[in-house]
Amino acid sequence: MEFLIETILSGLMAGVMYSLVALGFVLIFKASGIFNFAQGVMCLFAALTFAGIMEKTGLPWPIAFVMTIGVMVFVAWAVERFVLRHLVNQEPIILFMVTIGLAYVLEGVGDILWGSDVKVLDIGLPSGASDYMLDNFNIYVEKLEVFAALIAAVLVGFLAIFFQKTRIGRALRAVADDHQAALSVGISLQTIWVIVWSVAGFVALVAGTLWGAKSGVQFSLSLIALKALPVLILGGFTSIPGAIVGGLIIGVGEKLAEIYVGPFVGGAIENWFAYMLALAFLLVRPQGLFGERIIERV
């Protein structure tokens, strides 16, 4: 029993990461219809920059963190100014290819600026097993993972309030609903794109930091982005709750599958379980768990 719970918990923790990456995708996809292939690399780039600034300048982590946010906002601004602005009204496939290019650029720039060695991101996050859980329930969980889940929950709550209650959040949802109408009431799409890419950059920074604190900042970080695709198929490309729930399901699902089904098929299920699940979903419910009902009314 304890073992089952431990498996589920560790799955949930991994799922939180997938959720955060998928969340970044959803934000950009909703606001601009762009499938941002570079979201995973943005996590890597943000974490690299964060670790790199601390390493090179020796500044305390909160200052480096704020500076990294500045860098991510700059990236958002540059993407809008030099890319999106010139490609409005282009086919989605063209924009998608542009984001592939962006992924390579960010990876290259990250490499040039901060080098390609694995970096430790030590910002004093709690580590080791949670004694409380071990003593009371005889369950082993990493403190860091619990902490990561908490941070992710706070971040999601903060985003929900931002989207539902603020003027900018409302404008973001308006743009997601109807570009043209948003323009007509005086919402500047360019401003909104910068904001949404900045928010996605911030989410990437948080995800990258949590992941990096656990296993070091390295280029394989961008690979977790590949897990975001099945998460999106599961949750629906336009649904924020979908991204979160989808991430958790895949995180837990692949851990359970590895342990309970793996032995029968020779293991390594964790690597492809997510894609199989997504495929099954595509057949049964292509709009995803939370895929939006499309409102059509004449």
């Binding site: 949802r173 043209q180 409102i295």
Partner: peptide, 12 residues
């Protein structure tokens, strides 16, 4: 401008 076909934000 109030556009042809209303263009309300459907999910708001």
């Amino acid at each position: 401008q109030v556009m042809e076909g209303r263009h309300c934000f459907g999910h708001l």
